[in-house]
């Protein structure tokens, strides 16, 4: 069996509709993560998010970037199990995510440094936006 996987670049405005269509198509949520230094001609201070879905042995990775300090919508209304990933992204990168079904309010990991993966933003900034 050859591995069937792809990465798709999408705009940050079409995330929810795309995710919805994967959910209806019977995909499961594989993982979500955040990366600095996005590729291509996106400004260097943007953050890149990866939402990965899988069905059988197929894997699709949705990639989109957001400007620093921007807030994004939670996808827990569509995939309830996404709350772990979203809390993790919030704690490690300081991305504020709105409407998480189980929101740990920044206490998912109790860490010595705030947003260790994204030292550029001010500590506590993400909490304030909430």
């Amino acid at each position: 069996m050859t591995e069937n996987k792809m990465m798709i670049d999408i705009g940050s405005d079409e995330v929810l509709s795309r995710v919805q269509s994967y959910q209806q198509g019977g995909y499961r949520l594989v993982q979500m993560c955040c990366v600095r230094e996005p590729a291509g001609n996106v400004p260097a201070d943007h953050l890149e998010l990866h939402y990965t879905f899988g069905r059988d042995y197929e894997m699709v990775d949705l990639k989109f970037s957001i400007p620093p300090g921007a807030a994004i919508e939670s996808i827990t209304q569509i995939y309830p199990c996404a709350f772990l990933y979203e809390n993790e992204i919030h704690d490690l990168y300081g991305v504020s995510i709105q409407g998480i079904n189980i929101d740990f309010q920044g206490n998912f990991y109790k860490m010595a440094a705030a947003h260790p993966f994204n030292p550029d933003i001010e500590p506590g900034q993400a909490q304030k936006e909430k």
Partner: peptide, 12 residues
């Protein structure tokens, strides 16, 4: 659940 007791941050 609350986790994070073993969080080291080794990805960094």
């Amino acid at each position: 659940p609350s986790i994070g007791y073993i969080h080291r941050g080794l990805e960094i």
